[in-house]
Amino acid sequence: MAINPRHLGAALSMLLWQAPVFAALGGDAHSLDADRTVMSGQLRSTSMQQYDLHEITTSGGTVIHEYMTRQGTVFAVTWRGPFAPNLQQLFGSYYQQFQKGVAGSAPGMHRVMTIAQPDFVMHAVGLMRSYHGSAYVPSLVPTGVSVGTLQ
């Protein structure tokens, strides 16, 4: 769980760099900065054994985790806090699969939603003042990583 100074440095330099908007889920390091900017957040990065964990804390207190492969691709995201994150930003090119999943679920208000599209899986709870969820791209999950352990 030790913080890798190399990644901290990268994170700090990214704070000063206005990157073009890239996708987050399925995207690369540039997308992290786009996410941080769009969601008015603070970024903290940690190197884990099989992936890098990038944590964005938004100004409203919602904590977003982006899990990035060693090759630099975000394969999973999670969020938790009092405000819904910008899912279009967070899901990136997988946002349309999210929309498809919503369209295919029962109509009306949902407090819990589970989506299993071919290459996009999401489980989320959305209540006023309390949102949490996780999403991942099965084909991008590194070998040996159990998605069930990603908080």
Partner: peptide, 20 residues
């Protein structure tokens, strides 16, 4: 009753039970 987490593939973290 409804599903909270997909049963296909790898399960995600599941922390919730919604008593609707």
């Amino acid at each position: 009753a409804g599903t909270a987490v997909t049963s296909s593939g790898t399960n995600m973290v599941n922390n919730d039970f919604d008593f609707g």
